[in-house]
């Protein structure tokens, strides 16, 4: 099965993600370019981390208008699996494929460390079979998820919170570390699963995202 990884100008976790995908039996990484539009050869799409367009205006604000994102929006609307990590999560929110926005961290500074997240949903294509607690690295300056009361109420009622921080590192409302859309096929999170796929590099808790996909696509 082919998993497309989109490279935007300024993406810097795209190669890491492709390597992580290629470690998993049954999956093959396909590099996708932001100026292209063709998704016919892929079974799932990943929007990787980085600083698309430098994140200068708002994180993800410019990348969402790329030709590839128009295709990703259609792909998502067909109910097919889309995962956004870090900057990818920010892009999904800016593109309104996921609710809310990611604001500057509570302490106003970039933060790179391991965090423990609690897995609240295992019925998405990316979270099937995940343990209820994962240790994953975060590395972001804008991971503080915020939404208005009504949105928070709706997504909490609808069970769209997929991951919560055990100890909130960035001020995110309701400790939200990751979300899915109402249809459950689009998932976004701030921690980096692709950095936790090797025991020598600080754990393998990120592998489950990809093995879940193998199961779902089989």
């Amino acid at each position: 099965m082919n998993v497309g990884v989109v490279t935007f100008p300024g993406s810097n976790c795209d190669a890491d993600f492709r390597r992580a995908i290629d470690r998993v039996e049954g999956l093959r990484a396909v590099a996708l370019w932001h100026k292209d539009t063709d998704l016919s050869g892929v079974d799932a799409v990943v929007l990787p981390g980085g600083f698309s367009y430098g994140d200068y205006l708002r994180c993800g604000a410019i990348a969402r208008f790329s030709p590839m994102m128009q295709s990703v929006a259609r792909f998502a609307a067909q109910g097919r699996p889309v995962l956004g990590v870090c900057n990818g999560f920010q892009i999904l929110c800016e593109a309104h494929l996921l609710p809310g926005v990611l604001m500057q961290n509570r302490d106003l500074s970039f933060l790179c460390k391991d965090v423990t997240i609690l897995v609240e949903r295992t019925d998405t294509p990316w979270t099937r079979g995940l343990a209820n607690k994962l240790v994953l690295p975060i590395a972001h300056g804008d991971g503080n998820w915020q939404a208005d009361d009504e949105t928070v109420k709706r997504i909490e009622g609808d069970g769209q919170v997929v991951f919560r921080y055990q100890s909130n590192p960035n001020g995110a409302r309701n400790d939200v570390a990751g979300l899915c859309n109402a249809a459950r096929n689009v998932v976004g999170l701030m921690p980096h699963p692709e950095r936790a796929v090797d025991p020598l590099l600080g754990g393998t808790d990120g592998l489950g995202f990809l093995t879940s996909l193998v199961e779902v696509l089989a």
Partner: peptide, 23 residues
């Protein structure tokens, strides 16, 4: 902690030790 010390997914020994190790 203000530096992304893990991008590249190759950092074996992170900051805080005698030497860092990158694969």
């Amino acid at each position: 902690s203000r530096y992304d010390h893990q991008v590249g997914a190759a950092t074996v020994i992170r900051p805080g030790s005698d030497a860092a190790v990158v694969r």
